[in-house]
Simulated assay, not measured.
Amino acid sequence: MAVHAFAKSSGRRKPLPGGASNHSGWRAIMFLLPSWLLLAVFFFVPILLTFYFAFTNLSLTGTSSLATKFIGFQNFVSMFQDPTFRISVIKTIVFLVFSAVIGQQVLGLLLAVLMNERHRVFRSAIGVLVIAGWVTPEIVVAFIFYAFFSDGGTLDTFLSVFHVQPIAWLYAFPMVSVIIANIWHGTAFSMMVYQAALGDVPKEILESAAIDGAGRFQRFVRVTLPMIKGSIATNMMLITLQTLGVFTLIYSLTGGGPGNRTMTLPIYMYQQAFSDYQLGYGTAISLILLIIGIVASFVYLRMLKVKL
């Protein structure tokens, strides 16, 4: 009797499979709906509008500001016929390669290796100094390096001790100046990525390689680097995308000049969109910037043979 009653009660409590799953599904949708709405409003809609405006004559002034119309690939045709755009692409690639791919990447890895297995006090002191540059806002970094490279600034004052004549660094070597400033500002991120990656390398493997006769450099090249190639690819992609979007630092230091010598794509895009009021043209330039970032990311993954 008791067993029969328990079976009956258990049967009454058993939910209907179809209704329960449908009810749970609707509840999940309701919980996720606010997130989807936020993504749609602040992510997907701006992306779609960016693609649309790149193919229009959208402007802040003139007749096109009152009646925006679709013009197809005219913005892109004008862009590739503009010599300033071609200069901007070259300057962007130079700035990207020397300040991010070589500068931040190599220096960050070197600092991480030098700090690996060092005394905690040494790591903390160096880490604070390097990270201080990373957390400093770009506009502050720009003023720091303007004071450093300007006529009669810190660098000229230091070189005068060795009887070196003052040099107008921001005029004579503008691209070198902004590259050095960006390396100083962004190296800490690469250092932290590689510190975490080096900490995950099993010490047993390194010890086995040392027992087999591998020197420190051989262990680093043949054991450590292959094991952290995923971190290398990730870091290269992140600093590439960050460097492609650097605007405040360059604009505050040189304004894209003198002439077009530091005219990267973000500076050129800003001038076209907000100085010449051609928003459609400026949006088309932003798509080219996006394509450069995507191509660079796939090249990194291909070179390092990392799977997503």
Rank of each mutant, 00 (worst) to 15 (best):
residue 94 V to D: 08
residue 60 L to G: 14
residue 292 I to S: 13
residue 222 R to V: 02
residue 242 Q to S: 08
residue 73 F to Q: 01
residue 109 L to M: 08
residue 87 I to V: 07
residue 4 H to E: 13
residue 222 R to G: 03
residue 125 A to K: 04
residue 27 R to D: 05
residue 145 F to M: 13
residue 16 L to G: 14
residue 248 T to W: 05
residue 273 A to R: 06
residue 174 P to T: 01
residue 19 G to F: 09
residue 6 F to S: 15
residue 308 L to F: 11
residue 170 L to H: 07
residue 181 A to D: 00
residue 257 G to V: 02
residue 219 R to S: 01
residue 171 Y to S: 15
residue 272 Q to T: 10
residue 245 G to M: 07
residue 71 I to L: 03
residue 131 I to L: 12
residue 52 Y to V: 03
residue 26 W to D: 06
residue 267 I to Y: 01
residue 46 P to C: 06
residue 66 L to C: 02
residue 142 A to K: 08
residue 2 A to K: 12
residue 253 L to Y: 09
residue 166 P to L: 13
residue 228 I to F: 04
residue 274 F to V: 10
residue 60 L to S: 11
residue 95 F to T: 00
residue 49 L to N: 14
residue 216 R to Y: 08
residue 225 L to P: 00
residue 171 Y to G: 15
residue 102 I to F: 09
residue 174 P to D: 02
residue 99 S to Y: 06
residue 41 V to R: 07
residue 29 I to H: 00
residue 194 Y to F: 15
residue 172 A to P: 10
residue 48 L to H: 02
residue 232 I to Y: 06
residue 73 F to K: 05
residue 228 I to K: 05
residue 162 F to T: 12
residue 1 M to Y: 10
residue 6 F to G: 14
residue 3 V to A: 11
residue 172 A to C: 12
residue 167 I to A: 06
residue 244 L to F: 03
residue 159 L to A: 04
residue 20 A to G: 11
residue 185 H to W: 02
residue 151 D to V: 12
residue 174 P to Y: 01
residue 208 S to L: 10
residue 141 V to C: 01
residue 129 L to H: 10
residue 257 G to H: 03
residue 267 I to S: 07
residue 72 G to C: 07
residue 215 G to W: 06
residue 295 V to I: 14
residue 301 L to H: 10
residue 189 F to Q: 13
residue 68 T to H: 05
residue 37 L to H: 08
residue 119 H to S: 09
residue 23 H to R: 11
residue 135 V to W: 09
residue 259 G to N: 01
residue 30 M to S: 13
residue 7 A to N: 11
residue 45 V to D: 10
residue 308 L to V: 08
residue 218 Q to I: 00
residue 107 L to C: 01
residue 286 S to V: 08
residue 289 L to H: 09
residue 126 I to F: 14
residue 47 I to A: 00
residue 141 V to D: 03
residue 108 G to E: 05
residue 245 G to I: 02
residue 150 S to Q: 15
residue 188 A to M: 12
residue 4 H to D: 12
residue 195 Q to L: 03
residue 121 V to E: 04
residue 123 R to P: 03
residue 229 K to H: 07
residue 191 M to C: 06
residue 29 I to C: 02
residue 283 T to V: 13
residue 183 I to F: 06
residue 232 I to W: 07
residue 123 R to L: 00
residue 171 Y to K: 15
residue 222 R to A: 08
residue 117 E to F: 15
residue 300 Y to F: 14
residue 116 N to R: 13
residue 99 S to I: 01
residue 234 T to H: 05
residue 183 I to H: 05
residue 43 F to C: 06
residue 243 T to R: 03
residue 236 M to E: 14
residue 49 L to D: 14
residue 29 I to V: 05
residue 33 L to Q: 08
residue 255 G to P: 07
residue 220 F to D: 02
residue 33 L to T: 11
residue 279 L to M: 15
residue 170 L to I: 01
residue 37 L to M: 12
residue 268 Y to C: 04
residue 85 F to I: 12
residue 77 V to P: 07
residue 298 F to C: 11
residue 140 V to H: 07
residue 104 Q to E: 04
residue 89 V to T: 09
residue 166 P to M: 12
residue 87 I to C: 00
residue 93 I to K: 06
residue 67 A to W: 09
residue 151 D to N: 12
residue 1 M to F: 11
residue 305 K to R: 10
residue 232 I to K: 05
residue 241 L to C: 05
residue 217 F to R: 04
residue 266 P to Y: 05
residue 27 R to W: 11
residue 97 V to F: 07
residue 114 L to H: 09
residue 222 R to I: 07
residue 169 W to H: 02
residue 89 V to I: 08
residue 38 L to T: 08
residue 285 I to K: 05
residue 112 A to P: 00
